[in-house]
Computed example of a mutant assay.
Amino acid sequence: MTTDRTTEELRRGRYISLTTHRKDGTGVSTPVWYAVEDGHVYVWTRADSWKVKRLRNDPKVELAVCDVRGNVPGGAARLSGTARLATPDELGRIRKMLARKYTYQFWLVDLPAAIVRRGKRPHAGIVVTL
């Protein structure tokens, strides 16, 4: 369960450290862009990323606000949750949430990647319930 302080910390942050787990239980943390809405945390990532593969085996995740390099500041709340891959119907909504939060930065990353992929979007959305 999250407190108002934790929720506000999540809303203000630019990156979260998303920790997924290998089959042997070892945690692997990755800094990612995210959005918070309706009590869920939404992440946009490549469909062929290792974090997606790990989530298919184990939906348990941990989150903490971090910097671009994945460094979690002392005293930052560490939250546990359950993640699932977004349905195709949810992908557009997740993409819009991230574009709204990161504005031009999101488009500077996403648009050139779409051109290289010739319009194909091999992306996955991750929905985390805390």
Rank of each mutant, 00 (worst) to 15 (best):
T2H: 00
T3Y: 06
T3Q: 11
D4H: 07
R5N: 08
T7P: 00
E9W: 01
L10D: 08
L10A: 04
R11F: 01
R11Q: 13
R12I: 00
D24Q: 08
T26G: 00
G27S: 12
G27Y: 06
V28H: 08
S29I: 01
S29R: 14
T30Q: 03
T30D: 01
P31I: 04
P31L: 04
A35Q: 06
E37I: 01
E37C: 02
E37M: 01
D38E: 15
G39D: 13
H40E: 15
H40F: 09
V41M: 02
Y42T: 04
V43L: 04
V43G: 05
W44S: 07
W44G: 03
A47S: 14
D48H: 12
K51F: 02
K53Q: 11
K53A: 15
R54L: 15
R56W: 01
R56Y: 00
P59R: 12
P59T: 10
E62L: 03
A64P: 10
A64R: 11
V65N: 05
V68A: 13
V72G: 05
P73W: 07
P73T: 10
P73V: 06
P73E: 09
P73R: 12
G74M: 06
G74V: 10
A76R: 03
A76Q: 02
A77L: 03
A77N: 09
A77H: 07
R78H: 14
S80R: 15
S80C: 07
A83S: 11
A83I: 07
P88L: 09
D89Q: 13
D89F: 08
E90W: 05
L91K: 10
L91E: 14
R93G: 14
K96Q: 13
M97L: 15
L98E: 02
A99Q: 14
R100K: 13
Y102L: 01
Q105M: 10
F106A: 10
P112G: 07
V116S: 06
R117L: 11
R118I: 08
G119K: 04
A124D: 10
A124E: 14
G125W: 03
V127K: 13
V128P: 03
T129E: 14
